Simulated assay, not measured.
Amino acid sequence: MQPAVPTPAPKAPARARLRPTMQSDLDFVLTLERDPANLPYITPWERTQHEAAIRFPDFRHFIIEGGDDFAAAGFLILVGCKSPNQSLELKRMVVQHKGQGFGRAALRLARKIAFDDLGAHRFWLDVRTHNTRARGLYESEGFVLEGTLREAVRGTGGFDSLAVLSMLHDEFEARRARAQELPR
């Protein structure tokens, strides 16, 4: 009989927080966008686009801070914050060091902001279909596939399709009732 192998303790959730992006953060943001590891999955913006997103009331531009020292770990952008249709988009989320849980933690914070603070009825995003890591994260966090926009954006090797996923307020509240979301 083989000796029992101890089961590893569950990994503690990553510590993360969001803070509004400042002009002084834009070099970090632009560096992340232009990182070769991220380019296949996003369409980088110009500095002026990020500057506008910082100032325009319909946007929320955040730096993801994570780890024990809450160092800059990425950024995310919400669009539609003033939408009369209460449909808010996660326009972009880029994390510097993948696989450490900062993306999941930031997504949970962004959902809480979308539904609790900004009164969203629908929180949605699109993701390039070949970005299986991000899509797996979104689906594991309760986002529902709505459909595919075929060959909708220019990619590095031609045109890429986008999967559109969303979560509705009622779905968010049901997840909260099951303790799958951050408390109020």
Rank of each mutant, 00 (worst) to 15 (best):
R47C: 03
M22C: 15
A174I: 10
P40I: 11
A177P: 07
G147V: 07
K112D: 05
R128L: 10
G67K: 07
R178E: 15
A16C: 09
T21S: 10
D126C: 12
E51W: 02
G103I: 05
G99W: 03
P3T: 09
R47L: 09
H169A: 14
T43R: 13
R104L: 10
F62N: 00
H97Q: 15
L165A: 08
R128N: 05
L39P: 01
S83R: 08
A73V: 02
A53G: 01
R150P: 03
S24D: 15
R55C: 11
F115C: 01
A106F: 02
D69S: 15
I54R: 08
S140T: 04
K98L: 13
E139H: 07
H97M: 12
V153M: 12
G74C: 01
D117P: 06
R135Q: 12
G147Q: 00
V144L: 09
E51K: 02
L18W: 05
L168R: 07
P44A: 02
E181Y: 01
R122Q: 08
A14N: 06
E173W: 06
A4W: 12
G142I: 07
E46I: 13
M22P: 09
H61N: 06
R150A: 04
E51S: 06
F115Q: 00
P84N: 05
L145C: 12
G101Y: 00
A110V: 05
R135D: 09
A12S: 12
S24N: 15
N85E: 15
G136L: 03
R178M: 13
R47N: 02
T7D: 05
A177C: 08
F62R: 01
E139W: 04
T7L: 14
Q180S: 12
V164E: 10
E139S: 08
G157W: 13
I113E: 10
G103V: 00
R128P: 04
E89M: 11
R111V: 04
A110S: 10
L107E: 00
M1F: 13
E139Y: 02
E89C: 14
L182F: 09
E146Q: 08
T7R: 13
G142Y: 09
D27N: 15
G80N: 04
G142K: 03
E65M: 04
E46P: 05
Q100D: 10
A120R: 04
